[in-house]
Write a protein that binds this DNA or RNA. Structure first.
Lengths: 344, 344
DNA sequence: CTGAAAGCGCTTACAG
DNA sequence: CTGAAAGCGCTTACAG
């Protein structure tokens, strides 16, 4: 039902030349005379000519769109990530199609099918909680469409991915808590088959071990959304021997923990300390401000997009799967203020 | 450089029939024999056939993509909005292409051009701060591509738009502040040529007038990002006669105000009360929790998308520009606790 | 310097 | 029940 926009053929008719000539004039082909170019350019402007990207891409058998599949556009982390992706893509002259899996494996597969039909040039993926294997992405790669995974990735080595060094970061975060005098630390992780959980749990355990403390399994909990985080926090702070610190692996879990702490009327950090993995702005404006392991979504997004475009531009070469591991930085704020003076 | 995926012609060759037959078999055309259909379907499955959306759309002269232009994917408001849009679009079988203007008029125009080339089926727009007129969208509408504006819209009547009743909401918010005993209220608005500012300022003024208070121009300020909001708040709280309440029109301005209040070591709401327009989750988890005029980004997004699809599906009819005005709800929390007992 | 022709992958009216 | 042909809007090798 769309009105037809002006085409090459339409302009050719007006000028009494072939559409071939118009096409070439438009792209400043050396063969075309200057007068012809001026004429065509003027007409194109006058008629608001915009080349039909569909036709161009079909003809060239390539598209200028990359796909992004993420679990959900929540306000915690993905906005800055999408921004990073979008900026890199725009600078390369590409569009971005964003699809949400809503944490559903089924929906993730549907998205793959849709994107396959759109003949995207590449795909960025952060998998859903339900995703336990990668076989639904095989078709994409075997169609010659490169994929880069980021943030929420499965434990698997032969893929291209961008992530932070979660183990190291969790180790440092836990050490910070211990050195600040906290002794009974609960880790609020997410789905245990995701690398973001596995890595961070590993770092958490390692730090406890180094400090000669035992990593009690009851102190490692799994929350996949705000409500679960609130529920688990509530359970934990009502234990006989409640924790004196909670370490959350996402802003989402942080928000849940905060709700529970607030309802229990506990004071941060005196009753309970709080440390989180965070993109930054959210943790900073809380009161008290929340200490965090800062990992920039924007950076992950732009690095993932850059890696993807590298693959896109080098499809002729055999590239070896590459894992780009970004550093995360500990930002100490009020929520982990030292418990007993300076224990050093 | 992409590997070629299997095509109709490819499958036709395998089966020794024409691609016409394959095409029809795939879409369950009544003319085709059952055996042929089964054969084709099986082969398509085996070969992972996915129709080339580019070709389909080119042929049908329509696309299954809608465009979205927003100022920025900030973490304050747009995530839930995009979610609302994406869900409606998905249910209609459409993809969503999101482009950011980064609050730049120039970039907004570039986005329009790109989208025009993609032959999108429709466009959703929230304009940038710099945008003062709509002429760059004329080409879109005259190409027969419907537009629906949402949230950040210019003061203009003959357009399709979805927005909240900002005037009424600001009126009620201001009344709430006054009734809670606050007397010197500062409104932290955004760009004065945006309807979100104009409407809310109007409601703010009206409430003051009804209460017999005068709307001091010095108490209406304009901040377009977090830093400006922090700066202006800092200025204001250092006045000789500082406000006892600040009313911010966005989560972004709220975040800036909070920063300044924190640095000045003021207590909310005893030293200064805070009321904001907000999507909800952010204001709720703050400490103290922030009272707000709750307007659901998700709702605005899904309503805007629904209106757009109504236009897309009814391009043959002459539709009259429609402004869908959504209600916003006052949610009273700790940040506006009554100042002097109950003044009623 | 310009144009006719082929073709990207699909759909659909027409013919048999 | 099946197929040949035209065409969506473009690009590009080939010819002149």
């Amino acid at each position: 039902m769309q009105k037809k926009q002006i085409t090459l053929k339409g302009m050719a008719k007006v000028l009494g030349v072939s559409h071939t000539t118009v096409s070439r004039a438009l792209k400043d082909h050396p063969d075309i005379s200057e007068e012809m170019k001026t004429q065509v350019l003027e007409l194109a402007k006058k008629l608001n000519y915009h080349p039909n990207t569909l036709a161009v891409n079909l003809r060239k058998n390539q598209s200028s769109t990359i796909g992004v599949i993420i679990p959900e556009i929540s306000f915690y982390f993905f906005p800055s990530l999408l921004k990073g992706i979008e900026e890199v893509a725009h600078s390369m002259g590409y569009n971005v199609v964003i699809m949400q899996s809503n944490e559903s494996f089924k929906r993730e597969k549907e998205n793959v099918t849709l994107l396959l039909g759109s003949r995207i040039a590449g795909l960025l993926v952060s998998v859903s909680h339900e995703t336990k294997e990668y076989s639904h992405f095989d078709e994409i790669e075997s169609a010659g469409i490169p994929i880069v995974f980021f943030d929420k990735v499965l434990e698997k080595n032969n893929i291209f991915k961008v992530d932070i060094d979660g183990s190291k970061a969790a180790y440092e975060g836990t050490m910070h808590l211990i050195e600040s005098g906290f002794k009974n630390i609960v880790l609020l992780a997410a789905n245990p088959n995701m690398s973001i959980s596995v890595d961070r749990i590993q770092g958490f355990r390692k730090a406890l071990k180094v400090q000669g403390m035992n990593a009690n399994n009851e102190n490692i909990l799994y929350a996949n959304n705000l409500d679960e985080a609130e529920f688990l926090t509530q359970q934990v702070i009502n234990r006989e021997n409640p924790p004196d610190a909670i370490f959350t692996i996402s802003d989402q879990n942080l928000a849940g923990a905060l709700q529970a702490i607030k309802k229990a009327d506990l004071t941060i950090p005196d009753d309970i300390a709080l440390l989180t993995f965070s993109d930054g702005p959210l943790a900073a404006i809380m009161n008290p401000s929340i200490s965090c392991i800062k990992h920039s979504g924007y950076q992950i997004g732009s690095k993932a997009a850059s890696l993807l475009f590298y693959r896109i531009k080098n499809m002729d070469k055999q590239l070896i799967p590459f894992a780009q591991i970004l550093a995360a930085e500990l930002v100490v704020r009020e929520s982990t203020r030292k418990k007993y003076g300076n224990p050093k």
